[in-house]
Design a binder for these strands. Sequence first.
DNA 1: GACACCTTACTCGGATCCGAGTAGTAGGAT
DNA 2: ATCCTACTACTCGGATCCGAGTAAGGTGTC
Lengths: 199, 199
Amino acid sequence: MRSEMPVKRPANPLALAVLGVLLEQPMHPHAMATAFRERQMDSAFKLTTGSLYDTVRALARDGWIEATDTEQVGGRPMRTVYRHTSDGQRWFTEWLDEIVREPSREYPRFLSAVSYLGVLGKQRAAQALRERAAALQARVSEGEQAYRAAREEHKAPRLFVIEAEYARAMLQAEMQWVLRTAEEIEQGTLEWPEVSPHA
Amino acid sequence: MRSEMPVKRPANPLALAVLGVLLEQPMHPHAMATAFRERQMDSAFKLTTGSLYDTVRALARDGWIEATDTEQVGGRPMRTVYRHTSDGQRWFTEWLDEIVREPSREYPRFLSAVSYLGVLGKQRAAQALRERAAALQARVSEGEQAYRAAREEHKAPRLFVIEAEYARAMLQAEMQWVLRTAEEIEQGTLEWPEVSPHA
DNA sequence: GACACCTTACTCGGATCCGAGTAGTAGGAT
DNA sequence: ATCCTACTACTCGGATCCGAGTAAGGTGTC
């Protein structure tokens, strides 16, 4: 009897990474952290030890993964090794499918700031947007280097670094919008009603 | 003597909205909630009563805003009315400037899911991507309607609805990437190494 | 061989986020 | 007059997130 996917699906992208790395082999949390750092996965999620242990515990509580055994090497702290439960692997695939199919509501900081662009005034808004564009360009370049290293030096297939292609596409789209808007402000084609900074 | 912007800048976009709405006039939290709902600002942040009161308290604690007085209408619960502090308004502008200039690290769910596209298998991945594209298109259409209503019926200047233009640009960029990738999978131009679903 | 420093592996507590709950009022229907 | 529903305005507690802390073992060095 195949059981239903747990109702609880952790919001933290770190949970996805934990389930992903456990596909390779059972592992204790500290080993996961080491693996994530080695692979420089810090663009997909934020890795902090506190969150990692919490996430692992939550996944275990909700039946995605389970502790196999606790081992001790020397006099060091105990390790608890986790692996997918018998259903966990199938659930993971289902959950992935769901995340891909259904865009989730997210609230990027920049979106809410854009609403108040008027408060900054023309000059300052245009200048800030240009600085943002430069910072975005820097990120694109960084990502590009990492991408090339993975593809050429490590001979990684495109599928394995596809998230970098997605990240680049989104950064470039944002950059274009930001630059276009800065230009519109400077050229006066974006009508700029005088906002009284509170009456 | 002009004091420094507080080190604590709430991560929650709701904080930005609170500071924004207080530019118009001093207000108690419940009135803010009503204003946010009326203006359908739910694409920029998530409004829950709990978070609202927490956010307002945090902003007051850190000196952005302050309570003016507590009033009571009839036998209803007390209201606490808040307004910007003498520095609050300037800090708000500075903070906005900072948010616009410096892209923040954020971790959208989809980005982390894309890394594991391989796990879904070719057919399922392509199908899921196509469904996502359709959902994104639906959001674009919804946004478009709201945008037109604001522009044409309410005669809003572009600057006041500029965040909708940004949101649309980003949704369209994502949609294009998603569709292009689905096509590449179907046409076999995206090399698909057989992933053993755990050895 | 003693001191300093890095690594291993995890715990703890504070801050934040959020849905559900509470408690009183107002307005309308029966 | 009484009930019912909806609104007003806020509190509470659980879940999550995260940086700092802890404690023991290994490694190098003079």
